[in-house]
Design a protein around this nucleic acid. Structure first.
Length: 454
RNA sequence: GGCCCCAUCGACUAGUGGCCUAGGUCGUAGCCCUCUCAAGGCUAAAACACGAGUUCGAAUCUCGUUGGGGCUACCA
């Protein structure tokens, strides 16, 4: 069969919440492997938990994946040759194989439920692509605090299949070649292997991924702050950055050259897909480091072309209620170019550059009262000199300011800082002459006049 | 409790017996640059959990200890 060698991987979330950072990590590695090998990436919705699953969450998860740039080839919304892709729509399949197992005497009814009989003494070890050989005997599948072997529930009393059973039926029927999932599933694998064997099916290749932990080394949860990918979006992180950051958790690009130097850690999705190797995935659980996330985001922000950067920042300016529409896009984009390297997220960039969009925020945070009256004449003189510069460019303004202050034996700082406050209302900003030039003579004059300095 | 997995600087990691007086990145500290803050450049501090063994030689192999994590649901 020609299909035999093609890689088919899947991400199988439960629609019981938004796309979690851990889920995103798993989806990402599946995507990486599919794209690296030219295989297929399948999205399957595991909605057998009737009480917790909702269609809204299903959509939210798909939106989250799309935001991250993880496109799938087959799924509930796209269809495909192996559908349906929602477990709640595959109930007849689960019943069919449960019946087969019962007919063969491998499973039995217990009330409304169906249990699979676990026979002792079976070697259910497997070779994990990441963890290597995992040795387990079926005798380990015991009841808690007891030596009794515990049979596996495959159909629940409500008629729905259990996770361990449905996943086997679906992965086989959907011709999944590699099961790439979180390390927390390593203990479930032996049970699934038992089921594959009983059904007479080949087991897929398993590859478990290290867990993502919080700063306290505990499994990531709400306590740790942002846990859904949307929270990262709302904080102003770029999808490319979250992707890049997540890819670096449990994997690193091959060192390049004989120098032993590490490969570049800032990369695009396509570069990651090209470089990705399942064999280079780590086993150690990884702790999420917000500092590194910030750094990676800043790097991606820096590499953006001006108009795309504007598209990232604009929503935050709008959210702040600034009159973004009063300006040309190119002018706003240029303002953000001046901000280069300042701000680690789009939100920070928006907050640190609000004075370009409007004068109101400046007035709101600085009333000018900390400039004493006796300093004003000198400042007015300085600003007047600036306005006399024929060429309104950063270099010309700076040259003028430098000459003017040197001539009088005063510090440039004592004049540049007041100008900074007048124009931005902040003590930090890009080079103040660049800001002045970008705002334009008229606007600078208007702001100076407001503070009685022109 | 039982079973399974893991263990290199604060964090992410490179490393598969000699190339390691352990490399890179983030973060931290200092210096340079400088109208501020970033950015950028340079420098520094910072790790093989512990104990046995195998070996001429161990971060790398084996065993044990300790410490983490996961599973042990008619949740997924």
């Amino acid at each position: 069969m020609a299909d035999k060698d093609i890689v088919r991987v899947r991400f199988a979330p439960s629609p019981t919440g938004a796309l979690h950072i851990g889920g995103g990590h798993t989806a990402l590695f599946n995507w990486l492997w599919a794209r690296h090998t030219g295989g297929k990436f399948i999205l399957r919705i595991e909605d057998t938990d009737l009480v917790r699953s909702t269609k809204e969450y299903e959509q939210t998860i798909m939106d989250g994946m799309t935001w991250l740039g993880l496109d799938w080839d087959e799924g509930p919304d796209k269809g495909g040759d192996y559908g349906p892709y929602r477990q709640s729509e595959r109930l007849d399949l689960y019943r069919k194989y449960a019946r087969q197992l019962m007919d063969e005497g491998k499973a039995y009814r217990d009330g409304e439920a169906v249990l699979f009989k676990v026979e002792p003494g079976q070697d259910v070890s497997f070779d994990d692509k990441v963890y290597g050989r995992v040795e387990v005997m079926s005798d380990a599948l015991k009841e808690r605090d007891s030596d009794k072997l515990k049979d596996i529930v495959i159909i629940k009393s409500d008629g729905m299949p259990t996770y361990n059973y449905a996943v086997v039926v679906d992965d086989h029927l959907m011709a999944i070649s590699h099961v790439i999932r979180g390390e927390d599933h390593i203990s479930n694998t032996p049970k699934q292997i038992l089921l594959y064997r009983a059904l007479g099916w080949d087991v897929p290749v398993f590859a478990h991924l290290p867990m993502i932990l919080g700063k306290d080394k505990k499994k990531l949860s709400k306590r740790h702050g942002a846990t859904s990918v949307y929270e990262y979006r709302d904080m102003g992180y770029m999808p490319d950055s979250v992707f890049n950051f997540l890819a670096l958790l449990g994997w690193s690009p091959q060192s390049r050259g004989e120098s032993g130097q590490a490969g570049d850690e800032i990369f695009t999705r396509d570069e990651a897909a090209r470089l990705f190797e399942l064999s280079r995935v780590t086993r150690k659980p990884a702790v999420l480091d917000p500092d590194k996330m910030n750094f990676i985001n800043q790097e991606h922000l820096k590499r953006l072309d001006p108009m795309t950067r504007l598209a990232m920042v604009r929503p935050f300016w709008e959210e702040m209620g600034l009159p973004v529409r009063n300006h040309e896009d190119a002018w706003l984009a240029e303002a953000l170019t001046l901000m280069a390297g300042r701000g680690r997220t789009a939100r920070e960039m928006a907050e640190f550059s609000d004075y370009f969009v409007a004068f109101e925020p400046v007035k709101a945070r600085w009333d000018g009262s900390d400039i004493s009256e006796d300093r004003k004449p000198g400042l007015r003189e300085f600003f007047a000199a600036l306005f006399n510069v024929p060429e309104w460019t950063p270099d010309a303004l700076e040259a003028c300011a430098r000459a003017w202050t040197e001539e009088r034996g005063v510090k440039m700082k004592d004049y540049a800082m007041p100008l900074r406050f007048v124009l931005t209302g902040m003590k930090v900003s890009p080079g103040i002459f660049e800001v002045a030039v970008h705002l334009g003579r008229d606007e600078v004059k208007r702001r100076l006049e407001h503070y009685g300095l022109a």
